[in-house]
């Protein structure tokens, strides 16, 4: 089973005011490229680092452009990426 530590948000590294956060389970990614190819806002790019299986997972180099359409999440065949609302941006939350 996936531990919490294995699910790493690829960006932002720092606390962000961005509304959306993209979470990638790099070890489940098989590098198909669907997410970064079909992202309508060009938020994602292919990483230059490969995972334990030798695939190149995505990185969110333009997270500020993300509008939370979740196409990357819908199209990922490996349940390896999902988009969530950044807790920081939710009203009334710290």
């Amino acid at each position: 089973m996936l531990t919490r530590q294995e699910r790493v948000p690829i960006l932002p590294e720092e606390e962000s005011e961005m509304k959306w956060r993209i979470v990638v389970n790099e070890d489940w990614c098989k590098g198909c490229g669907f997410c970064y190819t079909f992202c309508p806002r060009e938020v994602l790019e292919k990483s230059d680092k490969f995972n334990t299986k030798g695939y190149y997972p995505p990185v969110a180099t333009n997270i500020d452009r993300c509008v939370g359409c979740k196409l990357c999440e819908a199209i990922c065949p490996d349940f390896a990426i999902h988009v969530e609302e950044n807790a920081k941006s939710k009203k009334g939350e710290k």
Binding site: K30, G31, C32, G33, F34, Y55, E73, A74, I75, C76, P77, D78, F79
Partner: peptide, 14 residues
């Protein structure tokens, strides 16, 4: 899962 990289079955399951 067992499906190949870029196989569409995973997307259908999703």
């Amino acid at each position: 899962h067992i499906f190949c990289s870029a196989c569409g079955i995973g997307t259908v399951l999703q």
